[in-house]
Amino acid sequence: MLRGFKNFLMRGDVIVVAIGLIVALAFSTLIKAFTDFVINPIITRLQGKGSIGLGWQLGSPGNAATYLNLGAFISAIVYFVVFMAIVYFMIIIPYKHVQARRGVTVFGDPTPAKTCSACLSDDIPAAASKCRYCGTEQPPAA
């Protein structure tokens, strides 16, 4: 039982995912600090006149609970875009490259599929001669 657990942990995929999560968390902290301490002050300054942010006060003046803060929303969008770009360029692309050298295709285009005329399942491989779900004969691929 412990040997199986050890084999599971030592698989390459588990290690890659664990490292990816650690790197993603570190970048998340860095990007959050960037948006909080660089982007937010710029957005607040664009509003001008001592405003607490880019947006509108919906209730009594100075009440942060009733302030519609568009600056925080723009900051969250910037955070998301930068975070996803870093994940893509620093984790996904190198992982695809390493797997390609091993002969494994990851994150590739889906394989061509056709739809069964009897059961309407749409994930039958294009080269299949029978439907995997209902067993209906399939026409040859065009």
Rank of each mutant, 00 (worst) to 15 (best):
N7D: 15
F8N: 06
F8W: 09
L9S: 05
L9A: 10
M10S: 12
V14Y: 00
I15T: 03
A24E: 14
A26K: 08
S28F: 15
D36W: 00
D36I: 07
F37L: 11
I39D: 02
I39Y: 03
I39M: 08
N40Y: 15
P41D: 09
I42A: 10
T44L: 08
T44K: 03
R45D: 11
K49T: 11
G53Y: 02
G55C: 02
L58P: 04
G59L: 06
G59P: 02
S60A: 14
S60Y: 07
N63G: 03
T66D: 04
T66M: 09
N69H: 07
N69A: 13
L70D: 06
L70Y: 09
L70C: 06
G71M: 13
F73C: 14
I77H: 02
Y79H: 08
F80C: 12
V81M: 04
V81Y: 01
Y88T: 07
Y88H: 02
I92F: 08
I93G: 05
P94Q: 01
Y95R: 12
V98S: 01
Q99V: 11
Q99T: 13
R101K: 13
R102P: 10
R102H: 08
V104W: 05
T105Y: 07
F107K: 03
T111C: 09
P112H: 04
S117E: 14
S121A: 13
D122E: 11
D123F: 07
I124W: 00
P125C: 07
P125V: 00
A126L: 15
A126S: 14
A126I: 15
A127P: 01
A128I: 02
S129N: 10
K130F: 15
K130I: 11
R132E: 12
Y133M: 13
Q138F: 06
